[in-house]
Design a protein around this nucleic acid. Structure first.
Lengths: 244, 244
DNA sequence: CGTGGGGTTGATTCTTATCAATTCGGGTGG
DNA sequence: CCACCCGAATTGATAAGAATCAACCCCACG
């Protein structure tokens, strides 16, 4: 992709063949890119100027900070993702959004998405689909947190990342600290370190300096109870004829 | 409500004033009620005949069973709720649906909802809103599972139920066994029992025979870190003029 | 060179699961 | 009415899992 192309178009284009009109509609969401440095707060929980963001480049995460200072990471966002759709239907953001790496993101008011999608039923469907996918991931995370011990939880998380990144290589980049991983999985960073060591000693995978190496994918899948279908089996959805 | 009235209409009617057309559209979703006895499997995970259900009366839950037999309860459904929207965008159900009590539910094919909502942009908005609400609850559950110890988790769960039931009385019915509660909260039933005892001894609440009594609401809210806004602050959403 | 953030390791403590035994209450059948 | 059974709830003992605390290493960076 050239650097000015819309990542959203690329993402959506994987799901449906977009018409030119749809593409130009989507492009209107990405008019105004802003830059955030690694660690920057992109959007604070409770801020009433409810915004969505398209993530042009870089990684981000959303998180909630509890009264006692504990954090729960709710989502990790990859380039091309829409951030904030989770809070659709609320008039304020329910979580903080933070840049994990240097980030280019385009904020736009919630209202805009309504306008765009009102013009194209097919894009509306796509939004449902994207929401469904997010919902499925969140559901899987509930299972992960509720019913799997640390090692399986971590293995499952790594595999989910691998699938989300469409990574078929053994090795891929994962720019997360062990603290962030812990906050996503409900574990302490110390325990993440120990658990990573365990996975390493089993010769299943390796993680350091933000690079994951999967040595034994089958073992990982088997051990963690990972089920690909929940991300793969997206319905053959577009029911509307492409609008002109 | 009279026994034949649409629960969905009642639910949606709380959010917007529905036009007659919208009401009759919604009513088409509830033509064919079926009865399920307590404990019946309403819909099995992976079943390809992807259906939604409107829950006319009674309670239900959705659950996933892991390879080792552990269960995670994903959702508790109240009368009037739409079941299955979570799996929108997938061509198969991702979880089992089970009746908690005797249940009247109306199954309808996923396609139907698309048809209905295609006819009314405002209902489409409402569906987004409902999905957003479910998403918010799931998010809150992630935080609950990831970052709160058993007692706070349980207290939070009870409060969420209270809010969802619009219950302002001290006492309300909650037809769940301790096993189900445990499976929802990632705890063993034994530990649920112990933890309930703890809350009881603190004079905060009491639960037995499917009836909850809240003795000290403030203490519960404070202790569990419960935040009402996440269910209350639904945006003043309907952007479309009511269609004729 | 210091300094600080991230990672590793070990010791200790707390939380929760697991197992086993007991109680309680509601059917069911004699 | 009683004996029996069954599912649910309770309780205690034990074991596993994970947090916390503290020390230390490593390395990038001023």
């Amino acid at each position: 992709m050239n650097s000015n192309s819309s990542c959203i178009i690329e993402q959506f284009g994987r799901l449906v063949d977009l018409t030119d009109k749809e593409k130009s509609l989507l492009r209107t969401l990405e008019k105004d890119p802003k830059h955030y440095a690694s660690g920057d707060l992109i959007c604070e929980a409770g801020s009433s100027a409810m915004c969505f963001f398209t993530l042009q480049s870089g990684w981000a995460y959303s998180t909630r900070v509890l009264a006692d200072g504990q954090r729960q990471v709710l989502d990790i966002f990859l380039p091309g993702q829409l951030m904030g759709v989770r809070d659709i239907g609320f008039n304020r953001s329910l979580s903080d959004f933070v840049a994990l790496t240097d980030v280019e993101a385009c904020p736009f008011p919630q209202r805009r998405i309504t306008e765009v999608f009102a013009e194209s039923p097919r894009l509306t469907d796509l939004l449902f689909l994207v929401l469904g996918r997010e919902h499925a991931m969140l559901t899987e995370r509930v299972i992960n947190l509720g019913r799997r011990p640390a090692a399986q939880r971590l293995a499952h998380f790594i595999l989910e990342m691998k699938v989300r990144l469409n990574q078929f290589e053994e090795e891929f980049e994962l720019p997360l600290t062990q603290t962030i991983i812990g906050d996503a999985l409900g574990l302490s960073s110390v325990h993440v370190s120990r658990t990573l060591k365990e996975l390493r000693q089993n010769q299943w995978m390796h993680f350091s300096d933000g690079v994951v190496t999967i040595n034994d994918l089958d073992a990982m899948v088997d051990f963690s109870g990972f089920n690909r279908t929940y991300l793969d089996s997206l319905v053959d959805w577009p029911r509307c004829p492409a609008d002109s």
